[in-house]
Amino acid sequence: MTDTLIADTADRLMAEVVPPAAVRGLKDRAAAAPVWSLLAESGFLDALVAEAHGGAGLSAAETLPVLLAA
C-alpha cells in the first residue's frame, strides 16, 4: 500500500465516523462503542498485527498516517 492510499482512506474514515463534533460526544463508553466497532471493521485497528494473525502487517512508519488522521 502506498502512504497516500493509507492516508487518504484514514482521513475519509475519520471524517465520516468521528468528525470533531462527534468526538465531543464520546465521553462515555456506551457512546464510543459504535465508533470503535466501525473502526475495527475498517481494519485500521489491526494495522500493526502480522498478516499471519489476521492483520495488515504494516510497519510503525506505515501506520503513521492512520495515527495522524485519528
Rank of each mutant, 00 (worst) to 15 (best):
M1A: 14
T2N: 14
D3R: 15
D3Q: 13
D3Y: 07
D3F: 08
T4M: 07
L5F: 06
L5E: 14
L5N: 08
A7E: 12
D8P: 07
D8R: 12
D8L: 11
D8H: 10
A10R: 01
A10W: 00
A10N: 04
D11C: 10
D11R: 15
R12K: 15
M14T: 13
A15Y: 06
A15M: 07
A15S: 15
E16D: 15
E16C: 11
E16N: 12
V18P: 05
P19H: 05
P20E: 07
P20I: 08
P20C: 09
A21S: 13
A21Y: 06
A22T: 14
V23D: 08
V23P: 04
R24Y: 01
G25E: 13
G25T: 13
L26P: 04
L26G: 04
L26D: 03
L26N: 03
K27S: 12
D28K: 11
R29L: 11
R29T: 10
A30E: 12
A31R: 12
A31K: 10
A31L: 06
A31Y: 00
A32K: 09
A32N: 06
A33Q: 11
A33R: 11
A33S: 07
P34K: 02
P34M: 03
V35F: 01
V35H: 02
V35P: 00
W36R: 14
S37G: 09
L38T: 12
L38A: 15
L39E: 03
L39Q: 04
A40Y: 06
S42E: 06
S42P: 10
G43D: 01
F44D: 04
L45W: 00
D46Q: 12
D46S: 11
A47Y: 01
L48K: 04
V49D: 07
A50C: 07
A50Q: 11
A50S: 13
E51Q: 15
A52W: 00
H53F: 10
H53D: 15
G54F: 05
G54K: 03
G54Y: 05
G55E: 01
A56H: 05
A56C: 05
G57F: 01
L58K: 00
L58R: 02
S59R: 04
S59Q: 04
A60E: 10
A60H: 07
A60K: 09
A60Q: 09
A61F: 05
E62K: 08
E62C: 01
T63R: 12
P65K: 06
P65N: 06
L67K: 10
L67C: 09
L68H: 11
A69G: 01
A69Q: 03
A70I: 10
A70W: 11
A70G: 15
